[in-house]
Deep mutational scan, measured.
Amino acid sequence: MEVRTIKVFTTVDNINLHTQVVDMSMTYGQQFGPTYLDGADVTKIKPHNSHEGKTFYVLPNDDTLRVEAFEYYHTTDPSFLGRYMSALNHTKKWKYPQVNGLTSIKWADNNCYLATALLTLQQIELKFNPPALQDAYYRARAGEAANFCALILAYCNKTVGELGDVRETMSYLFQHANLDSCKRVLNVVCKTCGQQQTTLKGVEAVMYMGTLSYEQFKKGVQIPCTCGKQATKYLVQQESPFVMMSAPPAQYELKHGTFTCASEYTGNYQCGHYKHITSKETLYCIDGALLTKSSEYKGPITDVFYKENSYTTTIK
């Protein structure tokens, strides 16, 4: 009895394709271990004539594949690729409408935090270190965002349907971005203890939790000093293409032309909904596939993004 075979390709990165001759009487799992086709788990399936010449994702289970996976995804987590594939199996079914010149995501599976993050990423200057993220990001900007969303979920250790947080998501993504040249110098002034300067680099240099107003941050924000008295913390120097200011959701007025974009969060910790506000020729609110415009805006804002380049204080 002759062994019926077909020729397929296996890959971990969709760049390096490895030619395989597979036995049609055995499952993919018996031949390769966990195997995925377009995100779908085909591990328990036997090869079919229609699979001839198709590319299958496999887990990096030998040295060659491990090197290829690390170079593309910059992670050695053995569960990463499987999590990416199972997320992709959902995100490829989502709709990605162009809204006001940006790629958004039609609401499904509690994905409003991903839509808000995706919209924000198209408006701030950011370059990702893992080629996987950078490639998928370019495709997302062009309207094909399924891979990018699935990668975000995998890097953030999230599953489809789980509630997510924009600030946490951005923080994970910033860790995989090139923020080497970003720098922030802060000064804390206390009447009792004097003053202390701190220099922050990388992710810490672009994120701040405690106030939404970048102007206020430049002037000074009140913080408790270690001595128990009130101290003032203010920005001395900022070198970065953008800054992200966050605070627990509270009524906040966004003035046209003073910011790049913002995240609105309605609801409580267990259950809520994100919308995205962007400042173009007027203010726009993007909620999944829905767009509304207004000249002014007041609502429960939790993150505001500002364009920056270089700032030095005039406070002496």
Results as ranks from 00 to 15, higher is better:
Glu2Phe: 10
Val3Leu: 14
Arg4Asn: 13
Lys7Ala: 09
Val8Asn: 05
Thr11Gly: 06
Asp13Thr: 13
Ile15Lys: 09
His18Asn: 07
Thr19Tyr: 12
Thr19Trp: 11
Thr19Met: 13
Gln20Glu: 13
Gln20Val: 14
Val21Lys: 14
Val21Phe: 14
Met24Val: 14
Ser25Lys: 08
Met26Gly: 13
Met26Asn: 07
Tyr28Lys: 05
Tyr28Pro: 05
Gly29Gln: 14
Gly29Leu: 08
Gly29Ile: 05
Gly29Val: 06
Pro34Glu: 11
Tyr36Cys: 06
Leu37His: 13
Gly39Val: 09
Lys44Trp: 15
Ile45Asp: 12
Pro47Ser: 06
His48Thr: 08
His51Trp: 06
Thr55Gln: 08
Phe56Tyr: 09
Tyr57Gln: 08
Tyr57Lys: 05
Val58Ser: 08
Val58Gly: 05
Pro60Leu: 08
Pro60Ser: 11
Pro60His: 08
Asn61Gln: 12
Asp63Cys: 10
Asp63Gly: 09
Thr64His: 11
Thr64Gln: 15
Arg66Phe: 14
Ala69Lys: 05
Ala69His: 11
Ala69Ile: 10
Glu71Gln: 10
Thr76Asn: 09
Asp77Leu: 06
Pro78Cys: 10
Pro78Arg: 15
Leu81Ala: 07
Arg83Tyr: 06
Tyr84Leu: 06
Met85Ser: 05
Met85Glu: 05
Ser86Met: 08
Leu88Trp: 13
Leu88Gln: 05
Asn89His: 07
His90Ser: 11
His90Cys: 14
Thr91Ala: 06
Trp94Gln: 04
Lys95Leu: 15
Lys95His: 15
Pro97Asp: 05
Asn100Cys: 10
Leu102Asn: 03
Ile105Asp: 02
Ile105Asn: 02
Ile105Arg: 04
Lys106Leu: 14
Asp109His: 07
Asn110Gly: 04
Asn110Ile: 03
Asn111His: 03
Cys112Ile: 02
Cys112Phe: 03
Leu114Trp: 04
Thr116Arg: 01
Ala117Glu: 04
Leu119Met: 06
Thr120Pro: 03
Thr120Ser: 13
Thr120Met: 06
Thr120Cys: 11
Gln122Glu: 04
Gln123Lys: 03
Glu125Lys: 09
Leu126Ser: 01
Phe128Trp: 15
Phe128His: 04
Asn129Arg: 10
Asn129Gly: 09
Pro130Lys: 03
Ala132Ser: 08
Gln134Cys: 15
Ala136Thr: 09
Arg139His: 09
Ala140Lys: 01
Gly143Lys: 04
Glu144Thr: 08
Ala146Trp: 09
Ala146Glu: 11
Asn147Arg: 11
Asn147Val: 12
Cys149Thr: 13
Ala150Thr: 03
Ala150Lys: 02
Leu153Met: 10
Ala154Met: 02
Asn157Phe: 10
Lys158Phe: 04
Lys158Glu: 02
Thr159Ser: 15
Thr159Ile: 09
Val160Ala: 12
Gly161Asn: 06
Glu162Val: 04
Leu163Cys: 10
Gly164Ala: 04
Asp165His: 03
Val166Ile: 05
Arg167Tyr: 03
Met170Asn: 04
Tyr172Ala: 15
Tyr172Cys: 11
Tyr172Arg: 14
Leu173Ala: 04
Phe174Arg: 03
Phe174Pro: 02
His176Asp: 03
His176Val: 07
Ala177Tyr: 01
Asn178Gly: 08
Leu179Met: 07
Asp180His: 15
Asp180Thr: 13
Cys182Trp: 07
Cys182Ile: 00
Lys183Tyr: 08
Leu186Val: 13
Leu186Ala: 07
Val188Tyr: 10
Val189Met: 11
Val189Asp: 14
Val189Leu: 10
Cys190Leu: 01
Cys190Ile: 03
Thr192Glu: 15
Cys193Leu: 01
Cys193Gly: 02
Gly194Met: 04
Gly194Asp: 05
Gln195Asn: 15
Gln197Cys: 08
Thr198Trp: 13
Thr199Asp: 07
Leu200His: 14
Gly202Pro: 01
Val203Asp: 07
Glu204Gln: 15
Ala205Gln: 00
Val206Thr: 05
Met207Trp: 04
Met209Val: 13
Thr211Phe: 07
Thr211Leu: 11
Ser213Thr: 04
Tyr214Gly: 01
Tyr214His: 02
Gln216Met: 10
Gln216Leu: 10
Gln216Asn: 09
Lys218Ala: 06
Lys219Gly: 10
Gly220Ser: 05
Gly220Trp: 01
Gln222Thr: 13
Ile223Pro: 01
Pro224Cys: 15
Cys225Gln: 00
Thr226Gly: 12
Lys229His: 09
Lys229Cys: 15
Gln230Asp: 12
Ala231Lys: 07
Thr232Arg: 11
Gln238Ile: 01
Pro241Trp: 05
Met244Pro: 00
Ser246Pro: 02
Ala247Cys: 08
Pro248Trp: 09
Pro249Ile: 03
Pro249Arg: 02
Ala250Arg: 10
Gln251Asp: 12
Tyr252Gln: 06
Lys255Leu: 09
His256Lys: 13
His256Leu: 13
Thr258Met: 14
Thr258Asp: 12
Thr258Trp: 05
Phe259His: 02
Thr260Pro: 01
Cys261His: 00
Cys261Lys: 00
Glu264Pro: 00
Tyr265Ile: 01
Tyr265Leu: 02
Gly267Ala: 06
Tyr269Ser: 13
Tyr269Gly: 09
Tyr269His: 15
Tyr269Val: 09
Tyr269Asp: 08
Gln270Leu: 09
Cys271Ser: 11
Cys271Thr: 08
Cys271Ile: 14
Gly272Met: 00
His273Asp: 00
His273Arg: 00
His273Met: 01
His276Ser: 04
Ile277Thr: 01
Ser279Ile: 00
Ser279Phe: 01
Lys280Cys: 10
Lys280Asp: 08
Glu281Phe: 00
Glu281Gln: 05
Leu283Tyr: 02
Tyr284Asn: 07
Tyr284Leu: 10
Cys285Arg: 06
Ile286Leu: 05
Asp287Phe: 00
Gly288Tyr: 02
Gly288Asp: 00
Gly288Asn: 04
Ala289Phe: 05
Leu290Lys: 13
Leu291Asn: 08
Leu291Pro: 05
Ser294Asn: 12
Ser295Leu: 15
Ser295His: 15
Glu296Thr: 07
Tyr297Gln: 01
Lys298Phe: 10
Pro300Thr: 08
Ile301Pro: 00
Ile301Ser: 01
Val304Pro: 00
Tyr306Glu: 00
Lys307Leu: 10
Glu308Thr: 09
Thr313Gln: 08
Thr313Met: 11
